[in-house]
């Protein structure tokens, strides 16, 4: 190819570069697609394992959806020896400081919270992002929302907010509360 900048050489060269690059990208995309999806599933599975009592089934293959507040929420039942021992609810809140926060909340059959685990968020590092630290989320463990008020102390609830991150703490409560309502819905359906 000539080095002079004639119109023909310029167009030829740029189109060639674009063509090769697009082909490369397409190839890498196809190669990594499977792995990216797999990684997503692994993340969900890890979160389920963190927030449910011991189980021996594959909760992610028994995924069901429950409608709440006009949106669909995924629920994963955990079973042991065929008996349901708890539910993991993939809850969300749109009240975060920046964007949606997705949280996996697990309950045992009595409605006690077994654990909560953040799946994705965009909160500020050092402030709202502290919700992913045990100091905050461990306060939900073992609590039953039937008696434990899911709002921050400032609003008359039982949750200790993260210092200087009341908005995030409120959002967290909102997500856990949504999960609780989903759980109640499931229990209602089961007893019918």
């Amino acid at each position: 190819m000539p080095k002079e900048s004639t119109l023909r050489s310029m167009v030829l060269c740029l189109s060639l570069v674009c063509l090769v690059c697009s082909a490369l990208l397409g190839g890498v995309y196809v190669m990594t697609k499977g792995k990216i999806d797999q990684e997503q599933i692994k993340k969900t599975n890890n979160a389920i394992a963190l927030v449910t009592p011991e189980f021996d089934n594959a909760p992610s293959s028994e995924k069901m959806t429950v409608e709440i507040d006009g949106k669909e929420v995924a629920v994963y039942p955990a079973r042991k020896d065929g008996q349901a021992v708890g539910y993991a609810v993939e809850s969300f809140t749109s009240k975060g400081f920046s964007g949606t926060i997705n949280i996996m909340v697990g309950f045992d059959m009595d409605g006690n919270i077994v654990g909560t685990s953040v799946i994705s968020h965009a909160e500020t590092p050092g402030l709202g992002a502290k919700m992913t630290e045990p100091a905050f989320y461990s306060q939900f463990v073992g609590k039953n929302p039937a008696s434990f008020r899911l709002s921050v102390a400032k609003d008359g609830g039982d949750v200790d907010a993260i210092t200087a991150s009341t908005i995030t703490s409120r959002a967290y409560c909102d997500a856990v509360d949504r999960a609780w309502r989903v759980f109640q819905k499931i229990m209602d359906n089961n007893s019918k």
Partner: peptide, 11 residues
């Protein structure tokens, strides 16, 4: 790509 919260809900 990003969701924004302007006072109300994130969208």
């Amino acid at each position: 790509t990003k969701e924004f919260t302007f006072g109300g809900e994130a969208h």
